[in-house]
């Protein structure tokens, strides 16, 4: 399989571990359902990256699922977190938003869906650690400009609309500064999608 997906690792790094280039996200170890959804989103134009769309345009679901399964099963080591110049106050605000949220702004904690360790939740919610800050910022930007979307209801689009620029910057600064815990893996699936703070169309309905 590694030989078939040589095209992917050119940007996403050996086994999908990301490269030092600073933008392309790690795909290794992300939940297979999440990776599959993103491949389909690129193919169907719900996410915009011309190289990704070009590469997956003529590939059937069955093969995209296999590619997603392959990278989901990879577990290469994480690189140390990026060195960032972020004010301590911003990092603290980011920590609060990520771990506790802000009820006054109707913002649930990132951890409420992305796992208490922020390493994702099977089968379709991605981990948030070990990603370049530029990549994280670009995703929020894409949601607010409506060039990234997901199956409806698009929970992340709603959350992005409630985030101020300062809060957004605080979250990405905090997330990209974290050291990924050893043996990081997506949390077990939630028993009921309806119990999440927001309804998300990307997560399979009912019992996992």
């Amino acid at each position: 399989m590694a030989e078939r997906v040589a095209a992917c690792v050119a940007c996403h790094g050996e086994q999908g571990r990301a490269t030092t280039e600073g933008y392309y996200p790690r795909i290794a170890g992300k939940p297979a359902g999440y990776l599959f959804n993103q491949l389909v989103n690129f193919r169907e134009g719900r996410r915009q990256n011309t190289t990704m769309t070009y590469l997956v345009s003529n590939l059937p679901d069955s093969y995209l699922r296999e590619i997603a399964d392959y990278f989901s099963a990879q577990n290469p080591p994480y690189a140390p977190p990026q060195r960032l110049l972020a004010a301590p106050a911003a990092l603290e605000r980011g920590r609060v938003l990520a771990t506790a949220g802000d009820a006054s702004k109707k913002l649930p904690a990132c951890a409420a869906c992305h796992g208490s360790a922020l390493t994702g939740m099977a089968p379709a919610v991605p981990g948030l650690l070990g990603l370049p800050r530029d990549y994280l910022n670009a995703q929020f930007g894409a949601w607010s400009n409506r060039v990234r979307s997901a199956a409806a209801p698009d929970c992340m689009a709603q959350i992005t609309s409630r985030l101020s620029a300062e809060d957004l910057g605080a979250i990405t600064a905090y997330l990209s500064a974290q050291t990924v815990p050893p043996h990081a893996a997506p949390a077990a699936p939630t028993a009921d999608r309806a119990k999440l703070p927001l309804d998300c169309g990307s997560i399979p309905r009912g019992a996992p």
Binding site: E3, A6, A7, A10, L55, N58, S62, Y63
Partner: peptide, 18 residues
């Protein structure tokens, strides 16, 4: 780079890296 199409006769094509 690019993938040949994933077809009934070749469902798991090898991709060329960019």
């Amino acid at each position: 780079g690019g993938f040949p199409p994933g077809t009934g006769g070749n469902p798991r094509p090898y991709g060329m890296p960019p």
